[in-house]
């Protein structure tokens, strides 16, 4: 565990909590992609099956449980409790366009052809692209609430911090996991356009709107 990894985890946690609180406090999930949230729940479910097979640390197990519970809570709030506020007309990205190719890739490119390893690989690849329905939704409506942009910024920063962690781990421990690194870079690149808008608009007190 190094500082970049810890900051990455905390940033991830912050993102998840920002989103949950936004939905809970405003009693609304307008502007949030339910498709992305379902994909994230799927990501955590397929990645953290090792909760049952492998104990690493209290920190590790606790964080996994928190991520899992929060992501399912978000999906529950969106599709049940506050379903009336869910903006499904603008959330039209087809999940199968991500899940099917990512599933195929996980079968073909993995470290080990075992069920748990393939599911872990699937979750790494899926996480890289799971935000696309949300970005697609913002591009359709042309804007995002400020609180939603804070959520996206924290979520994007998490993987960027992990990349620094991987560089650090490579030089200090000689550790690297090519699958995680490549997927993590793809994931971070997808956020670059958003990061630019966040820094030039949201941090200057304006709402995030896309140029016409």
């Amino acid at each position: 565990m190094n500082i970049f990894r810890l900051l990455g985890d905390l940033s991830h946690l912050l993102a998840i909590i920002i989103l949950l609180l936004k939905i809970w406090r405003t009693r609304s999930c307008a502007g949030v992609s339910g498709k992305s949230q379902i994909l994230f729940a799927l990501v955590f479910t397929t990645r953290y099956l090792d909760l049952f097979t492998n104990f690493i640390s209290m920190y590790n197990s606790a964080m996994k449980l928190i991520y899992l519970v929060c992501s399912y809570a978000t999906v529950f709030l969106m599709y049940f409790k506050f379903k009336a506020t869910y903006d499904s007309n603008h959330d039209t990205f087809r999940m199968e366009f991500l899940v099917v190719p990512v599933g195929g890739l996980a079968f073909l490119v993995n470290h080990d052809f075992t069920p748990l390893e393939i599911l872990w690989t699937f979750s790494i690849y899926l996480e890289a692209v799971a935000i696309l329905p949300q970005l697609f939704m913002i591009s359709k409506t042309g804007e995002a609430e400020t609180i939603t942009s804070h959520y996206l910024f924290a979520l994007g920063s998490y993987r960027a911090l992990y990349i620094v962690n991987w560089v650090f781990r490579f030089y200090t421990e000689g550790f690297f996991d090519l699958i995680a690194i490549v997927a993590g870079c793809v994931q971070t690149i997808l956020y670059c356009d958003f990061f630019y808008l966040y820094i030039t608009k949201v941090l200057k007190g304006k709402q995030l709107t896309l140029p016409a």
Binding site: N54, I56, S57, D112, W120
Partner: peptide
């Protein structure tokens, strides 16, 4: 490849 030995990341 003992991958799970190294899967301490989240």
């Amino acid at each position: 490849y003992d991958s799970f030995k190294e899967k301490d990341e989240l």
